[in-house]
Design a binder for these strands. Structure first.
Lengths: 109, 109
DNA sequence: ATCATTGATCGTAATATTACAATTAAACTT
DNA sequence: AAGTTTAATTGTAATATTACGATCAATGAT
């Protein structure tokens, strides 16, 4: 039906999936990379950099904001976006611990 | 329009987004965790474990298979699924290098 | 005050995803 | 051979996502 049955999974599973989803789009990856590179930046920049319409970028920024990954502060007519280092580290360690499990090296079955 | 404009992003960005997308669902996280725990397992198991219909789980398994994360070998009437350790390590290092960039610790702007 | 700039929001269209019942295909069991 | 079991596939419905034009709200510039 297009709706995820969140209630049957653990909080951790839902949260991890949500984190991954927030970054599961090349535009959002590109935005994050751009923010990292310039350490602080303005939305208008991105509209020039990426080849997407202003409304579309604003939508992606909103998702990243909802995920807590970025913050925006109003700066005159423009908005200054940057990565929230605390949340970034949380993401990093959550994914690290997910991927750090040992996977059997033997052939399947 | 619902279609991602892959052509305007780099291969790396598209690939990374694809990796994240493959895991961006709690059911797929749960499947991976179950496979890790039991090191090798059978689909029927999962239908019992998770509370999803067989068709739905089969669909999620297909996506993980397309992403290269799991392999299935036919074993009589059932299929034995397990994680591909090589691809798993690729994911791990790709995400590690994405998250390893230093993010400014100062307040925004 | 008027105009320009910037970015959020609204409305809409196209496509993708999630979920499941029903069916099918393949291999085992009797 | 007939029936059973297992998992893939098909068809379908509901919802979500992606994208963009148009508009709106807020601030700055003239």
């Amino acid at each position: 039906m297009g709706i995820t049955k969140s209630e049957i999974f653990t909080d951790k599973q839902n949260k991890l999936a949500g984190m991954l989803k927030a970054l599961a789009h090349p535009a959002r990856i590109a935005i994050i990379q751009h923010l990292v590179k310039s350490q602080a930046c303005i939305c208008g920049d991105l509209v020039g950099e990426l080849g997407l319409a202003q409304a579309t970028i604003s939508q992606h920024l909103k998702e990243l904001k909802n995920a807590g990954l970025i913050q925006g502060t109003i700066e005159g007519t423009s908005v200054c976006y940057c990565i929230d280092p605390k949340v970034w580290k949380q993401y990093k360690s959550a994914l690290e611990s997910f991927f750090s499990v040992e996977v059997a090296n033997s052939q399947c079955c």
